[in-house]
Write a protein that binds this DNA or RNA. Sequence first.
DNA 1: GTTAGCACTCTAATAATGAGAGTGCTAAAC
DNA 2: GTTTAGCACTCTCATTATTAGAGTGCTAAC
Lengths: 342, 342
Amino acid sequence: MQLSERKEKILAAIVEWYIATGEPVGSKTLLEYSRIPVSSATIRNEMAELDRLGFIEQPHTSAGRIPSQMGYRYYVDRLMNRYELPINEKRLIEARLSDSGGEPQQILEQAGQVLAELTNCAVVSTTPTDENAVIRRVELVPLGTHTAMMVMLSSSGILKSRVCRTDSELNLELIETFYNIVSKHFIGKSASEVSIALIQTLALSLGSKSLAISPLLVTLSDLAQLTEQTQLLLQGQSNLLHHNDYPNAYEIMEFLRRGEPLTNLFAGHKTENNTNVLIGKENFYRELQDSSLIYSHYSIGGKDSGALGLIGPTRIDYARLIPSLKYLTEIVGSIMSDTLED
Amino acid sequence: MQLSERKEKILAAIVEWYIATGEPVGSKTLLEYSRIPVSSATIRNEMAELDRLGFIEQPHTSAGRIPSQMGYRYYVDRLMNRYELPINEKRLIEARLSDSGGEPQQILEQAGQVLAELTNCAVVSTTPTDENAVIRRVELVPLGTHTAMMVMLSSSGILKSRVCRTDSELNLELIETFYNIVSKHFIGKSASEVSIALIQTLALSLGSKSLAISPLLVTLSDLAQLTEQTQLLLQGQSNLLHHNDYPNAYEIMEFLRRGEPLTNLFAGHKTENNTNVLIGKENFYRELQDSSLIYSHYSIGGKDSGALGLIGPTRIDYARLIPSLKYLTEIVGSIMSDTLED
DNA sequence: GTTAGCACTCTAATAATGAGAGTGCTAAAC
DNA sequence: GTTTAGCACTCTCATTATTAGAGTGCTAAC
C-alpha cells in the first residue's frame, strides 16, 4: 500500500519520535517536531486515517499514537534514511576487529562484543558452515598411558578437540596405526562422510587391533560431527535488560540459551542489500514475537557462510543499527576470507 | 559471640523461614513453625534481644524480622544443618558430567551448566592454573601461502590456537626451521619462560631468516601467554533475574562480564571443608555487597588449581547449595585429574 | 522468667478526586 | 474539497484519604 506523501512524513515522524523518546506522540508534539505546515487538526485527521489503516495505534484513548508493527515495517522498507556509516565508526569497528586470533569463533566473538556495545542489543551469530569443508589435519597427543587429546582442524579453519580414553595402553604402535588410518581414510574427506558405518567397517578390518583402536575412531567421528555443526554464539544478553517496556528479557534470554532450533533463525530470504529485518509477529518463534530481529549474512570467499543477528524490542533504532550491522558483517566476512586464503 | 540455645533455635527458624518464603517472620508464625514450647511473648522478647545484638532486623516497624548479614553468618557457621548430598543427586551430577569432552574448559562449562540449573545462581569458574605446566606440543598448520594456524597444548591439558600471518612465503623450509626452534627452545619450558626477550634473542640469532620467522615466534609467545592465563567462565546469569527483592541483577551481570579482577575473587582463606561463603558486605567488590558468594576450590592431583563459585542474593538456601557445590567441585577435580594421568 | 493483654505504629490495599493530555467531531473559513 | 478553530468527551496517572491488619513493645500479673 502506498501512502500519500504527507501521511508518509507523519508516519516517519511518529516512528522516529517514538523510537527516540519512548513516549506516544500526540498531534501537537508532532506539529512541532515534524515541521509539516498544517494545523494540529489536520494532523489529527491524518493520524485517525493512519490508525484506521493499521499503521499506528493508541495505547489508550487519551494517549498519543505509537507505531504498529505494520508501521515499523513500512518505515523500514520505504521511509527510513539508509545512511552510510560515518567514517569514524567504520574506523572504530575495524580497529576493534583487527586483532582477534583468527579462528572463526574468535573472530565472531570479537565482532559480537563490538556489536553488543554498539547497538545495546543481544547478539546472535552462527559459525560458518561450509559443505565443501574437509578434514585437514588430525593430531593425537598422549596425555597419560590411557588418555590422549585428539585435535581436528578442518579446511574451513575450525579447530575442535576432545579427550579420548582407551582401554588398552596407548603405545607408539597404536598411535602409528591410528595415523595411518587417518591419512588413508579421513584426511581430505568431508565430515559428513565419517559415518558410524565407515568407522565400524574400518575397525573390523583391523582384526586384532580392532578393540584397541575403536575408541580412537569413535572420538574421531565425534570430532567430525562437532566440526561440521554450526554453533550459535550469544552475546550482550544483559543489554536486553536496558530497555523499558520490554518485559520479555528473561524469556528471551532463556530461549536463546536453549538455542535448539536457532540455526533456522536466519534462514529467511535474502534481500537486495543482504540485511533482513523481522519485526514482532513476523518472527517465527513465539518468544520473539514482541521483538525485532535484524540479521545479515557474512560471506567467505563470496559464499554466504553464516550470519550475525541483533535482537531487541520492536522499538529500536533501525536506521542506526542496520548500517552498523551491515558493515560489521562485511568486515567479518573479509577477515575470515583473508585468513583462509591469501 | 555465643548465643543461648533458645536464641539459636529462634535465629535458625527465622533464617530458614525467611529463606523459604521471602517474607519477614513474626513472633506468631515463628511459634507455629519452630515448635519452641514458649509463648509468642517470650519469643518477642528474645527477638528484641537478637535485634539489639544485630542478628536480625525489621524492614519496618509493623513487619516481622529478617536475618541481618550477621545473622546469616552465624547461621552458616554454627546452625546450618550440613547434610550430606542425597545419593540420587550425586548420581545425577555424575551422569551429567561423565561426557564432557575432556579439555578443562569443556569440563568446567558442563559443570557450570549443571550447577546453574541445580542452584538457580550465577556460576563463575576459573580454569586451572598450574605453575608447573610446560609447553607440551606446538603445531603449525599452513592455511594459505602466508597464513597458518598455530596450536599449543600445555601439559595441564589446555589447548589454545591462533592464526598467524607471515610477511614472506610460508614454505617448508621456514616451517622446519620453526619446528626446530620450538623443540629446541620451547618444548618442556613453562609458559612464563617464553619472554619477549627470549623471542628477540632467538630471532636475532637466526640472521637472514630472522625477519621471516619472527611473526611466528610472536604468535608463539602470544599463545604461551594465553595458555598461562587463567580464564573466567560465566554461566546461568539469567538466573539472577529469578529472585525477587534483588534488583542488582543487571549491575552484577555487567560486573561479571567485565571480569577484570575476578581472578582474585576466590583468593580467600581456605576453610576446613574447602567451601567459603562470603555474605553481603563481606565481599570485597562493591557490586557484590548485596549478594552472597559461595565458592570452592577444585584440586588436580591433590593441588588446588581453580574454583567454582555461586553468586546469588544473600537470601539463598545455603544449606542446600553448599553441599551441591562442594560435591560438584570434587567431581570436577577428579575428572580433571583422571584426564591428565591414568 | 514467662505470659496475657493492650495500645501503638506502620504498611499495603482500596477508593475518591482532579488535573492534564489527547482525541474526534462539527461548523466555519479558505 | 480541504483545512482549521473550538469544544465536549474520555481515559490515565498522580495525589490524597481511609482502613484493615500485622506485628511490636511494654506493663502487670502469674
